[in-house]
Design a protein around this nucleic acid. Structure first.
Length: 491
RNA sequence: CGGGAUGUAGCGCAGCUUGGUAGCGUGCUUCGUUCGGGACGAAGAGGUCGCAAGUUCGAAUCUUGUCAUCCCGACCA
């Protein structure tokens, strides 16, 4: 019993850290702040990526790849963009190593200094817009709808597996349009695509909204976001979609001739989700026994575990198990028959529960005498008996049910932890003691936002889309306000 | 960059006060018995004690320096 997790109640962040390691998702690397994504964690990312990639293509986007390195001068073209990223950039200054004079390893060759230093991309707007400039002459060249799957580097002070690492994997979409309206439409289309993916595949309910000016992406005119509430009452930004206006077009001089033969700057968007989504997934569904994964993206949907005493029993059990495996595979359900002899069944149960496999089937010699197998669902930890000939049909339904159930559970949690508050005292109390989302009036100024953050550590997570308009008074300043915004402490 | 802590077997740790053959748990290897919720026994493999200098007959242990990592703050998807 040495492998138990710290419970969420004991120490939520320790629980998270241990879970990532023990569920075999990822581990820290020798390079500070960087992670090794292990096969099980990477399989999860691949499943997420595959679904998203299909969604992007269905909405008319194409994949491309732009360089990892960006000339330093590019980053300084757009003023607020530089300001946003300058403090966390890795810089390449040399291109060669040589044997050290004392023959103890290698040193940077001082003669290999680069004429212009290169920045390891923290995001690709600048390199992409400098390229788009050459691709765009006429309105006939628009829109450009491109996505890239890539790694980026942001030199973070404090890192945590998946939630914030110095290097992470993501996708970044970069689109160019003729009109402001079309670009805004694209920005909104993508944020809804993200919400659709995160809710319907990852089973994580999200709030869709707009960022305030201070939380906005550096260089954006408007930032749309999806925010998810974690089990510790903190909010996590799970994806962003930016309307960039003509900021980058102007910075990189990207103009096109419109139908009236007049030069215009193009309108831009960019949008992304990262491996951080895996952090959101873990913290939304998992429990003190380990990971809980939504069937639609789980690397392994069903595991079958045999129980037997001797070879004769093993043969019988395996025959039934293998038949179930085959039938599940025919229905495109991923399944593993774990007949390793070196571990006992109880050990395997705990292992797969830690890894969040949605369904487990136990086939025991004693079961077979009664023509039954045991079906276990990870989300509720319930066990049921089924006859081998119908178990596969039941599992198809069960996987659906688990997907739905964990979403409903997460949604109920969010609703329970979203408070409408009208006084400053109550606001402080809820943020301090209960956590979760707090819906409150705000006077719309950055000063008030900053003062609230200073006092409570809570920030405005978003201004929900289609927000009901109502007269009210700012929670902090008492000034008039016409809508509520969502506050929370955040990751 | 401030404040605190830690470096000893793959992992988790003890040993250091009072210097004298480097230990425990777990994991690993082999064999046997087990097998319905993290089995048990036996036999094994595995360590420049972070690094460097110093004190000493002798340093994991004492001294000095140095490097690294982790935690708490300022910055962030």
């Amino acid at each position: 019993m040495a492998e138990l997790l710290t419970t969420r109640k004991e120490n939520y962040s320790q629980w998270y850290n241990e879970l990532v390691i023990k569920a075999n998702l990822a581990e820290n690397s020798v390079v500070r702040g960087c992670m090794v994504i292990k096969p099980y964690g990477y399989a999860l990312w691949e499943n997420m990526r595959d679904v998203l990639d299909k969604m992007f293509k269905q909405t008319g986007h194409q994949n491309a790849y732009f360089p990892l390195f960006i000339p330093k001068s590019y980053l300084s073209r757009e003023a607020s963009h530089v300001e946003g990223f300058a403090k966390e950039c890795a810089v390449v200054t040399h291109y060669r190593l040589k044997q050290s004079p004392d023959n103890e390893g290698v040193i940077v060759d001082p003669d290999s200094k680069l004429e212009e230093e290169l920045i390891v991309r923290p995001t690709s707007e600048t390199i992409i817009w400098s390229t788009y400039k050459n691709w765009i002459q006429s309105y006939r060249d628009l829109p450009i709808l491109i996505n890239q799957w890539a790694n980026v580097v942001r030199w973070e002070m404090r890192t945590r597996l998946f939630l914030r690492t110095a290097e992470f994997l993501w996708q970044e979409g970069h689109t160019a349009h003729q009109t402001k309206e079309e670009a805004i439409e694209e920005t909104e289309k993508i944020i809804h695509l993200y919400a659709d993916f995160v809710e319907n595949y990852m089973a994580v309910p999200v709030m869709v909204g707009l960022k305030t000016a201070s939380e906005r992406f550096a260089g954006a005119v408007e930032t749309y976001c999806i925010e998810a509430l974690m089990q510790d009452g903190k909010s996590l930004q799970a994806g962003t979609s930016h309307f960039l206006g003509q900021n980058f077009a102007k910075a990189f001089d990207v103009q096109f001739l419109n139908k009236e033969n007049k030069l215009e700057y193009v309108w831009a968007t960019s949008w992304g989700v990262s491996t951080r989504l895996i952090g959101a997934l873990i913290m939304t569904h998992s429990d003190d026994k380990g990971l809980v994964l939504p069937p639609k993206i789980a690397p392994l949907q069903v595991v079958i575990i045999p129980i037997y005493r001797n070879e004769e029993q093993e043969a019988k059990v395996s025959e039934v198990a293998n038949a179930i495996v085959k039938e599940l595979q025919q229905k495109n359900i991923s399944v593993k028959y774990d007949n390793r002899d070196e571990y006992r069944s109880g050990w395997k149960f705990n292992e797969y529960e830690m890894q969040g496999v949605p369904v487990r089937i136990t086939v025991g010699a004693r079961d077979l005498e009664k023509n039954q197998v045991e079906v276990f669902r990870r989300d509720t930890m319930d066990k049921k008996l089924a006859t081998p000939d119908v178990v596969v049909d039941e599992i198809v339904d069960l996987l659906e049910d688990i997907q739905q159930n964990i979403f409903n559970k997460a949604l109920a949690f969010r609703e329970k932890n979203t408070c409408v508050v009208d006084t400053w005292e109550e606001f402080k109390d809820v943020i301090e003691n209960k956590g979760g989302f707090v819906s409150a009036h705000w006077d719309g100024t950055a000063e008030t936002e900053e003062a609230i953050k200073e006092a409570t550590k809570a920030t405005i997570r978003c201004i929900p889309l289609n927000n009901p308009q109502e007269e009210g008074k700012c929670i902090f300043s008492g000034k008039p306000s016409k809508e509520r915004v969502l506050f929370a402490k955040s990751y």
